[in-house]
Simulated assay, not measured.
Amino acid sequence: MATLSWSDLPPDLLVLVLECLPSLADRVRLRTVCHPWRSNARQHSLPPLLTLPDGTFLSIPDGEVIRMPVPKDARCCGSVDSCLFLMEIDGGCSLVNPFSRVTVELPKLGTVGCYNSFNVTSEHKPVIPSALDLSPDSLVAMLILHDRRGSKVCICQPPIATDMSSARASWPFDDIAFFNGKLHGLGDRNKLFVIDMDYESDKPKITSIRCIISYGYGLRDLPQSVSREKVHKKREYLVECCGRLLRVRRFFQSDHHGRTSRYLKHHNTVGFDVFEAGMSANSGQWRKVNNLGGQALFVGRRSKSLPAVEHNGIQRDCIYFLRDYCPTKDPLRDSGMYNMRTGMITPLLSETVAVPQLHGGNWCPTWIFPYY
C-alpha cells in the first residue's frame, strides 16, 4: 500500500478544515504547507490585508490584527500580491512572502535615485507580469518616483540580479502596470505609454517608450464631491480589471487656508473618478466609466482589482484606498472606501471594530493579498 502524505488530503476535506479555523492567520498558514493545499484552498477566498507601521497586518474589513514573522532591520516600501517589497538600510531589496517565507532577491534598487538610510525620499512601485506566485526567474518592473519630480523605470530578473535595465521618462510616470503582457506607464498630460522590452537577450532590456493615448472625454470634469471653490490635488493609479486597463484619479482637498494648502500632507481624499483605456486603433482615448462591473479596486503603492462576491465584507463598485503619501504612524489616516454609485466615503473598518493601538514602527501602509 502506498504511503499517503498530508498533500494527498482530498480538496473537500481541506475546505472543511479551513472553515473550522477561526483565525485568519491560521487559514493563511494552512496555504503555506504545500502546493496542493495552496491550489485547492484558493477556492476559499481570503480578505485583503493592510500592513501596519509595526510590521503586523490588519484584515479588511473585520479588523483582525495578524502577527507573522517578518525580517528585522528592513522597511516595507510596497508589495506585489502576496509578497512584501522590503528594503534594507544598505539599499538591498527583496520580495518576501511573510506567510511562506519564500524570498526573491532583487538588485540594490534602494541606491537608484535618492536614498539615505531610512530617510526615503524616493517612492518605489514594483509590478510583475502575472498574479501567480513568484518564481526564481520572475521578471520584476519597478517605478521609482523621486519627490514626484521625476521617475525611472527599472527592469530586473532574479535570482540575485547584479544589474538592471532602466529608462528615464521625459516626464514623470504616476504609475505602471502590466496589461496583456505589456508594461504600461501613466504619464503627465493624460498620456498612456507602452514600455517596449527586448526579451531575446540574456536579460530583458527596455528598448523604447511609446505614447498610445493622449486624449479623453471628461478629463477636465471633477466628481461632485470635489468643491469647485477650493484648490484640489490629484494622485493617479493604473489598475488591470477584468480585461480592462483602468486609470483611477484620486482627488484631495484641504480645510486649511494659506500656505498649508499647498502641501498634500494637510489634505484629505474627497472623491474619485475612473477611466478605461481604449486600446483599439479607432478608439485610442480615455473613456469614463461609472461602475466596476461588480469588482472592487484597492489602490495604493500596489493596486489590484478583486471580485467582490468572492470576498466576505468587500463591497462591489467600491474603491478602497489608504494613505500612500507623506508617511504617518497612523495607518488609517486618510483611508477608507469610496462608493462609485453614491459618491460617499466610509471608513475602512466597521464602527463596531476597535482601531488597533500601535506603538512605533516605520513601515508604509500597503495592500497585501494572501495567495490570491
Rank of each mutant, 00 (worst) to 15 (best):
H232K: 04
Q285D: 01
V274T: 07
D334C: 13
I195N: 06
M340H: 02
I368V: 15
Q315W: 06
L322G: 04
C211R: 08
S45Y: 09
P48E: 10
R168Y: 15
P11Q: 08
N40D: 14
L219A: 04
E19F: 00
P365C: 11
N290L: 14
P22H: 07
G150C: 14
L332P: 04
P98D: 03
Y320M: 06
R75N: 00
M344D: 14
S254A: 08
Y338C: 08
G278K: 02
R67Y: 05
T51C: 09
G278H: 02
L14A: 04
D147W: 10
K288W: 06
L58Q: 02
C114I: 14
L143C: 07
T366W: 01
G271P: 02
S130M: 06
L16S: 12
Y237R: 05
K108C: 10
G113Q: 06
L13W: 12
M87K: 11
W37S: 01
G78K: 02
G216Y: 02
I60W: 03
G63L: 07
T121V: 14
R250G: 05
V80T: 10
D317E: 09
G343P: 09
V299T: 13
L332T: 07
V104E: 02
L238S: 04
P158G: 13
V104Y: 05
A141V: 06
R287Q: 15
N312T: 11
D54G: 02
H256P: 00
L219Q: 10
L106C: 03
S201K: 10
S100W: 01
V355C: 14
V231M: 13
P61C: 09
R149C: 08
A354W: 01
G300C: 07
A161Y: 01
N290Y: 15
I209P: 00
S225Q: 13
L219V: 10
V127N: 04
G110I: 05
G293L: 13
D324G: 11
H44T: 12
F369N: 01
E88L: 12
A161M: 02
C154N: 05
F369H: 05
V120T: 11
L349K: 07
Y263R: 00
L95G: 03
Q285I: 00
E351Y: 12
V17I: 15
A296N: 08
S79Q: 03
G110W: 01
Y217R: 12
R31P: 00
K72Y: 05
E276I: 03
P307K: 07
L297E: 02
D81R: 06
V194Q: 07
R244Q: 14
Y372T: 06
Y371E: 09
Y115D: 10
I66D: 05
L18S: 10
C242N: 15
G113N: 07
C154D: 04
S166Y: 13
D255N: 13
V353N: 01
D147G: 09
I206R: 06
S151A: 08
T121K: 12
L139Y: 00
S79H: 04
N180T: 05
H232C: 11
